[in-house]
Design a protein around this nucleic acid. Sequence first.
DNA 1: GCACTCAATTTGTGTAGACTTGAAATTTTT
DNA 2: AAAAATTTCAAGTCTACACAAATTGAGTGC
Lengths: 234, 234
Amino acid sequence: MTQSTETTSYKDIKQTVLGRIRSGEWRPDTLMPNEEDLAVEFSCTRTTVNRALRELAEEGFLERRRKAGTRVSSAPQRQARFTIPLVRDEVEAMGGTYRYALVSAQAETAPEWLAARLALTPGQRVVHVRCMHYSGNTPFQFEDRWIVINSVPQVEQADFSAIGPNEWLVQTVPFTNVELSFLASRADATLAGFMDVTEGEPVFTAERITWLQGQPVTLAKMYFAAGYRMTTRL
Amino acid sequence: MTQSTETTSYKDIKQTVLGRIRSGEWRPDTLMPNEEDLAVEFSCTRTTVNRALRELAEEGFLERRRKAGTRVSSAPQRQARFTIPLVRDEVEAMGGTYRYALVSAQAETAPEWLAARLALTPGQRVVHVRCMHYSGNTPFQFEDRWIVINSVPQVEQADFSAIGPNEWLVQTVPFTNVELSFLASRADATLAGFMDVTEGEPVFTAERITWLQGQPVTLAKMYFAAGYRMTTRL
DNA sequence: GCACTCAATTTGTGTAGACTTGAAATTTTT
DNA sequence: AAAAATTTCAAGTCTACACAAATTGAGTGC
């Protein structure tokens, strides 16, 4: 049998099943028919049903256990998927013209809080880069970044006046592990100056720590413009 | 051939490919071998390779286009996946004892900003619920929520003194669409009182709008305790 | 009543092969 | 040289079947 004219695709099955959940036909905790029965109902193979259900489970709508079967998720522990674009892309997506400006870049001994945060041995040296990302002439993001020299020796020769440290790192170092946090911080005097907000103002902030095979590579603090919100649709 | 003793699983392939990316063997933008060739290399079927690559692409490591082939993502790690647990789960996961307290609940006409935000017809009525979530006796989250009566008529009979509006809604209304935002806001006098922070302090805030088949159901603003950060590892 | 064993059931994952689809590359036409 | 039609290739998806692995539930022995 070919799939030519009238096959049920795994996408159709996903849609139908989702519909039954949303309509209330299959309420939370309901045990649904097993894959074989569904395959008969949709007149396709179990493989196709399996893919549909597997994806729905991954998206948090279903819970599946061998032998126990598949049931509708009761506490839909929903997963939000945020796209974290490069600043340039984010600015351009909003119709702005991206502009980058280096503020400062210098090698120094890692301050204590940073050494503690990244589990560095005391006295390790880092490159501290500060830079601005603009949308047109409007401040969009202030980036405060430290790069561990031991992990990325080439960084001492890097020139951050034209290319941002993030883009440089992405091209240079493959990384294995990332920790990303979002928080609300308050604008200090420096930040207020750069971002054109009043001191003390709440600022949406992202922090990103990157490792390469267990070695800490970089910590970046990114401060967004006033009123910034990170939005996603599920 | 059976998969009995020494088969290459799609997981093995994922691992190997990831390793090659991380080691720098396959740099960003590199065009990798096509599925058939990889199937030969790993001595498995194309189906298995396909699944491995498909998942890696979904995770953001690869970019695939028909005919053009598969290449290593140049801006990897673009998707962060946050699990959004119920407050109760989040508190308990941190070892705290969850406690809920209703602050106020009343039916009212939707204020203009809300009507505009949810595209309500003027004069529509909503139930406005405010409540606190504690970890032990420490304030954890202040929840400010509006529920559209038209979309959920049962809400007028609901009793939110024992069960939180979120848990009530999850049990009552299947929802089809969610918009989730994170932002930094400043604590006003009311919030400062409930959350035990000083007025003007930055507060990490999540806003969540939910629809049921195009009908707006609820808008929730959730204000987190001082110092809260939402963290994920990729 | 309790612990143990074992078979049945259900999802998980693999093989082998074929057709479909979208987009890049090439050729033909204007 | 530019535009349009055609070919070709790689990913996308389906069929059909098989064995693997986890867990449940029933049966057995004490």
